[in-house]
């Protein structure tokens, strides 16, 4: 297999990754999924960069990818923290719920209302308790803003 066809295959996979990520980012409303899609786009780009690097036989592509990985890690840290906070605030991961930064007087965009979640449907992660159980602060539980 010659070098050019090898590059070609890599580029196809890379652009598939990017395309899937892009479409996913545009059509999904779940924040975590959108975040994953964004990561997928980055991976598509990274793959293409490495392929070009190898084709041209220089380290530039790989260097770029190392930067991308570093940036993506940082971004993941921030984004996941934000998403967590947002979820704490609103109890939903729907991106359409967060349209507050639109122009004043502009109606909110309603695409397809997500069916209201039933309280009993909520499933919270259950973990095996470890260590010493913290003292329950009743007051704090009462005044928890959401959830």
């Amino acid at each position: 297999m010659n070098e050019a066809s090898l590059l070609h295959n890599y580029l196809v996979v890379g652009s598939l990754l990017f395309g899937i990520g892009l479409i996913g980012f545009l059509v999904r409303r779940n924040m975590i999924v959108m975040f994953l899609c964004a990561e997928m786009m980055l991976q598509g780009i990274s793959l293409s960069a490495i392929a070009f690097g190898r084709y041209h036989n220089d380290w530039g592509g790989q260097m770029l990818v190392i930067f991308i990985i570093a940036v993506a890690a940082a971004e993941a840290g921030i984004a996941l923290a934000l998403i967590l906070m947002v979820f704490h605030k609103s109890g939903t991961l729907d991106m359409a719920f967060w349209q507050d930064l639109r122009e004043g007087g502009h109606p909110a965009f309603i695409d397809h209302r997500v069916p209201e979640e039933q309280a009993e449907d909520r499933v919270w992660p259950t973990l095996t308790p470890a260590g010493i159980e913290p003292e329950v602060n009743e007051d704090e539980q009462l005044h928890r803003s959401k959830v």
């Binding site: 892009l22 980012f25 545009l26 059509v27 409303r29 959108m34 991106m95 359409a96 967060w98 349209q99 507050d100 930064l101 639109r102 122009e103 502009h106 909110a108 965009f109």
Partner: peptide, 17 residues
Amino acid sequence: MRSLQMGLVQFYALAMV
């Protein structure tokens, strides 16, 4: 231009694309 600022992330992304 104001009507473009609709606060929908997907729309912004689409605009970028």
